[in-house]
């Protein structure tokens, strides 16, 4: 069943809850198809679970460099509670796009779809101790929970290559730092709200930093520059 959001929190995103992607039994769970000019629709969904499942269903996973989209579809952009679909009206009729969006089935299997990415992390970030204290765990328990959880790339944002990762529990939910850092180094692994994420480049940031990776999250010299794409499954391992 689709879960409704009683209390939107960080970023207004609902809790991912258990059983990602938690596909519903009837239809795609599309709440509304909002017009967005003459060459896009904004699909409203009940929550982030539904977004991930719907996005995976639409794009047929994200393992391939190019998604399997109908001709004329330009972008499929998942966000907290919506999926934006832009198209070229010269190549596909709005009614066809509408049909495609309304008939899409959410993907039910989180493992068989999407790419899998493993990221090596040196834990011991500047906020690990504070995070452990906030969660009432030892630092080792935070690391164990972070590495044993299966994370799902829900959506990008903030900077190219940055992906909001969610998992099936909220035991690592922590608030952002009261005062954001003016410079977070590239490769910093952080927690904020129900999300985990890796900074692709040095930037200001308010996430709780628990570790660092040497993996390149964004490499503009590659034909496929993003290490993680929406829909992917991500696992963290200790370096």
């Amino acid at each position: 069943m689709w879960r409704l959001n009683p209390s939107p929190e960080v970023l207004g995103v609902g809790s991912p809850g258990a059983g990602l992607p938690g596909a519903g039994s009837s239809g795609a769970g599309v709440r509304a198809l909002l017009p967005c000019g003459d060459s896009a629709f904004l699909v409203e969904l009940p929550d982030l679970n539904a977004v991930v499942a719907y996005y995976r269903g639409l794009t047929g996973a994200s393992a391939a460099a190019s998604l399997s989209l109908p001709r004329g579809i330009i972008d499929v952009v998942p966000a907290a509670r919506t999926v934006l679909v832009t198209f070229d009206p010269g190549a596909i009729r709005p009614a066809e796009v509408r049909d495609w969006l309304e008939s899409a089935e959410p993907a039910r299997d989180s493992v068989s779809l999407g790419g899998e990415v493993t990221i090596e992390v040196s834990y011991g970030g500047p906020d690990l101790a504070e995070t452990a204290q906030f969660l009432g765990m030892s630092e080792a328990e935070v690391v164990k929970l972070h590495t044993s959880s299966e994370w799902t790339a829900a959506f990008s944002g903030f900077a190219p290559g940055f992906v909001y990762l969610v998992t099936t529990h909220e035991r690592l939910r922590v608030p952002r730092r009261n005062t954001p850092r003016t410079a977070v180094p590239a490769g910093a692994v952080g927690l904020a709200g129900e999300f985990s994420g890796v900074y692709p480049r040095s930037s200001p940031g308010g996430w709780q930093l628990i570790g660092t990776t040497t993996a390149a999250l964004w490499d503009a010299s590659k034909a496929d520059p993003a290490l993680i794409r929406p829909g992917d499954v991500v696992r963290f391992v200790e370096a």
């Binding site: 939107p8 970023l11 207004g12 995103v13 967005c36 000019g37 060459s39 896009a40 904004l42 972008d75 952009v77 998942p78 966000a79 907290a80 509670r81 919506t82 999926v83 934006l84 832009t86 944002g157």
Partner: peptide, 12 residues
């Protein structure tokens, strides 16, 4: 109410 971040099109 706060609008959760959503995709933005060119020309929005």
């Amino acid at each position: 109410e706060e609008l959760p971040s959503e995709g933005m099109v060119l020309g929005a």
